[in-house]
Measured scan of single mutants.
Amino acid sequence: MAAAAAAGAGPEMVRGQVFDVGPRYTNLSYIGEGAYGMVCSAYDNVNKVRVAIKKISPFEHQTYCQRTLREIKILLRFRHENIIGINDIIRAPTIEQMKDVYIVQDLMETDLYKLLKTQHLSNDHICYFLYQILRGLKYIHSANVLHRDLKPSNLLLNTTCDLKICDFGLARVADPDHDHTGFLTEYVATRWYRAPEIMLNSKGYTKSIDIWSVGCILAEMLSNRPIFPGKHYLDQLNHILGILGSPSQEDLNCIINLKARNYLLSLPHKNKVPWNRLFPNADSKALDLLDKMLTFNPHKRIEVEQALAHPYLEQYYDPSDEPIAEAPFKFDMELDDLPKEKLKELIFEETARFQPGYRS
């Protein structure tokens, strides 16, 4: 834990890192770190609560700039109880001085990944967590956004079992017609939660990839272990087919990539493993919904509104309290091709509203 900075004593240090967030945020305490930044909790002297502050230093890398800009653009436009918001952003007053960006968010005690390492969940908890994931996802999908990296560590939890989806750095506007060349190379989302079509096709992607990830998360809540822990690309596919069985001819016809289709045709026939054999203690309604989410063919996979209306979630289902976005989200430009200098300018502009004396 960093010592509390005395008023006016300059930035606090946390594990050798400068955290320049005073005077409003003090009493910093280390939480963890990701690929390009550290997260601390801090005391907000204005709202009198502890908050989470993520320090991001992305400006050396085009990919990190892209992810940072995506996350900020999306989260500043989203407003939903099951999606983490941005409360404040701290950065230098000029673009030349801006080396880091500090993002202030609600402090959540833990995440689903940490929880599943230590606790076996009751059916009631599984049901409530799944409902909140789908409630947040309904809003995301209504904005025409794909999260693309749903996994237990991106689901934040607090002691009252509130759940918030975080990390929109890989999110995209849904565009089933656009052929994202190089899709697989830039697709760094965790393999275990990846839909089979991501490994088999490169053309376009749809909201059904997020539903697949939610199915993987439900299976993990039922058993405290990942359902498809593939060691590499082909191993991942083999794990999936080992449980779902061989795809039907109709399902194979959806695979545009001939090499991928021929690979699947070359494999020995596998039978589907019954879900109640894998999860003998699970609620039968939970397994019915799991089956509809972990469907090989993305066109037959359940959609988020149908999933919310499934009998497993009937005690929570309330369409009048499951809000959607006001308007579909649009990125003005494809960020993939922009140089990091341009992305830095866009991050600077996007964060201006939090600067003292800002006038829109």
Rank of each mutant, 00 (worst) to 15 (best):
K138C: 08
G22Q: 09
N158E: 13
K114L: 13
D337N: 15
S122W: 06
K285D: 04
N45R: 07
H80D: 05
I256S: 08
N271M: 05
D318P: 00
L313W: 03
Y36D: 03
K164A: 09
L294I: 07
Y64D: 09
N27D: 09
D111W: 01
F19N: 13
D251E: 13
V21Y: 10
E305I: 02
H61G: 02
L258P: 13
I217H: 12
I86C: 02
Y187N: 15
V49D: 07
M38I: 15
H180F: 12
T160D: 07
N262I: 15
K99S: 05
G357F: 00
D100C: 02
T295Q: 07
E96G: 01
P196H: 14
D235W: 02
S41V: 01
E345C: 02
F354K: 11
G32Y: 04
P311L: 12
E345K: 14
I217P: 09
D318K: 03
I83L: 10
I103C: 09
N47H: 11
L150K: 05
K330A: 01
D291N: 13
I140A: 11
G85T: 04
I83D: 00
A92F: 00
S202W: 12
V145T: 03
Y64W: 11
H232D: 02
R70A: 04
L157N: 13
I103L: 09
A3M: 11
A6N: 00
M221H: 08
I217V: 08
E345L: 05
C65K: 01
M199P: 04
E96I: 04
K259A: 06
A327W: 07
P319G: 10
K207Y: 13
S153L: 08
V51A: 01
A92W: 00
K151R: 13
D318L: 06
S246H: 00
F279W: 05
N158W: 13
E109I: 01
S142I: 03
V18M: 08
Q119T: 02
Y358E: 13
F78C: 10
Q132K: 15
I211W: 13
L69Y: 04
Y316D: 06
D332I: 03
L150M: 14
S57R: 04
K285R: 13
D288Y: 15
H239N: 15
D100Q: 03
Y43S: 07
K300C: 11
V51N: 01
K285V: 07
D177H: 09
Q306K: 04
Q315K: 14
P11K: 14
Y316Q: 07
G10T: 08
M221W: 06
Q132T: 07
S246T: 01
I227L: 12
A260Q: 02
K207R: 13
H310S: 06
K207C: 11
I90C: 02
L338V: 03
N144F: 07
E109K: 14
I86N: 13
L335P: 07
N47I: 15
K138H: 04
T160R: 13
D106V: 11
R67M: 15
D288M: 02
V18N: 03
L294S: 07
I243A: 03
L252E: 08
W192L: 15
L313R: 01
A174Q: 08
R359M: 14
H310M: 05
T63I: 10
K114S: 13
I31S: 01
T181R: 11
L308S: 02
P298A: 04
I31Y: 01
Y113R: 11
P319D: 10
K117P: 08
K344N: 14
N27W: 04
P176K: 10
L237M: 10
A9P: 05
E186D: 13
R24M: 11
H120G: 04
G16C: 06
A5Y: 00
K138V: 12
D162P: 00
K340W: 02
Y36Q: 00
A171R: 09
P268C: 05
V14E: 09
V145R: 05
A92E: 00
Q236F: 08
E33L: 00
C65F: 14
H125V: 09
Q119P: 06
D88V: 09
H125C: 10
N253E: 13
Y36L: 08
M98N: 05
E220R: 10
A52I: 11
A7K: 02
H239L: 15
Y358N: 11
Y128N: 14
G169R: 02
Q132V: 06
K340R: 14
